[in-house]
């Protein structure tokens, strides 16, 4: 299936998330909009704490108080899902949306055998017998590369290594063949070889089943070879979005450019790594105008007063003085 811009599988519009705190509400996500077409992988990168996981959590309806959606809409295959009753959302989750969380331990019950957790999840969502469910669980464990899966299926999570637990979580998310997968750092605990196996698996799901995937990761290499498009987040907003090759090769937002320059190379050894000096502002101290202005080498007075918007186009950056004219597709 090819990506069709006409009918996105997931559509997020102007999403705003606030945390109600003792000192009033804090805006953690501010006007986030993006689409993912069937069979498309959208990569999400950005500063730690920028709101990537929050975006994913909101889509799967697991935002917990004091956090709440304060504005915007989320549509799945044309159906609005951000205001669904909890019970309906629960059924949607797992069946139509599969989630791979950043922290494998929160998704796994420590006292249940890995196989039993998979079997229960499969039985909840698919009309199959227990024996069939166990067979599928075993197949999934093999597919995510667990060695000696026949033996390992009856082990407890603590007997697995960090990366093996992460693969079990991936298997859990794939159980019911969902049409949308939110994958939050699915490959960080994995070595390059297993990582290649997982990204190949994700790509195959997209190609063969038209699955749409939101892939959050800090690994630019993984993004470059897996994602079709990439969104870069900073301080609760998308600051640049576009086709992967364009964004990684010709970043137009200064933050994206700094990010690309910080990647260590495996081909040479540097004395010192490039870094973007300073830190991302806290939610209660986001500067007026462009949130990146205190760390930006191109900032002018205009940036400190006017918040740049994100144009709706193929490759776009939320910046008054982009590095290059973003190519319009």
């Amino acid at each position: 299936m090819t990506a069709s811009a006409a009918q996105p599988l997931l559509s997020v519009r102007d999403l705003r998330i606030v945390f109600d705190g003792r000192h009033g509400p804090l805006t953690a996500l501010d006007g986030v909009s993006f689409d993912i077409a069937p069979g498309e992988i959208l990569g999400m990168v950005g500063e730690s704490g920028a709101g990537k996981s929050l975006t994913g959590t909101a889509v799967i309806g697991l935002l917990e108080p004091p956090g709440r959606i304060a504005g915007g809409e989320i549509h799945l295959a044309g159906q609005r899902i951000d205001n669904l009753p909890a019970e309906q959302m629960r059924r949607l989750r797992g069946r139509r949306i599969g989630a791979i969380f950043q922290d494998p331990l929160t998704s796994l019950h420590p006292l249940l055998k890995v196989g039993d957790q998979l079997v229960e999840t499969i039985l909840t969502h698919l009309p199959v017998s227990r024996a069939e469910a166990r067979k599928r669980a075993l197949d999934l464990l093999k597919e995510v590369g667990i060695p000696a899966a026949e033996t390992r299926i009856d082990h407890f999570p603590h007997q697995f290594s960090g990366g093996m637990r992460q693969r079990v979580v991936i298997a859990l998310a794939l159980c019911a063949e969902p049409s949308l997968i939110i994958a939050d750092e699915p490959t960080t605990a994995l070595d390059v070889s297993i990582q290649a196996q997982i990204t190949t698996l994700l790509k195959r799901l997209c190609r063969e089943h038209g699955t749409a995937i939101m892939l959050v990761t800090h690994d630019m290499g993984v993004i470059a070879e897996t994602a079709d498009r990439v969104a870069v987040m900073y301080a609760g907003r998308i600051v640049e979005i576009g086709p992967v090759e364009e964004v990684t090769r010709r970043p137009s937002h200064p933050y994206t450019a700094g990010l690309m320059a910080s990647i260590p190379s495996v081909h040479v050894r540097h004395e010192h790594l490039n870094q973007i000096d300073g830190a991302m502002p806290r939610l209660n101290a986001i500067p007026p105008g462009c949130a990146f202005n205190p760390r930006c080498g191109r900032a002018e007075a205009f940036c400190r007063e006017n918040k740049p918007g994100l144009p709706l186009s193929g490759h776009a950056a939320a910046c008054h003085f982009p590095l290059k004219e973003a190519a319009h597709a």
């Binding site: 990168v45 950005g46 500063e47 730690s48 950043q102 750092e185 960080t188 605990a189 800090h218 630019m220 700094g258 990010l259 910080s262 990647i263 260590p264 790594l273 490039n274 870094q275 973007i276």
Partner: peptide, 9 residues
Amino acid sequence: SALDVSVQA
């Protein structure tokens, strides 16, 4: 492993 490349640097 959980850090973006700029914080990692």
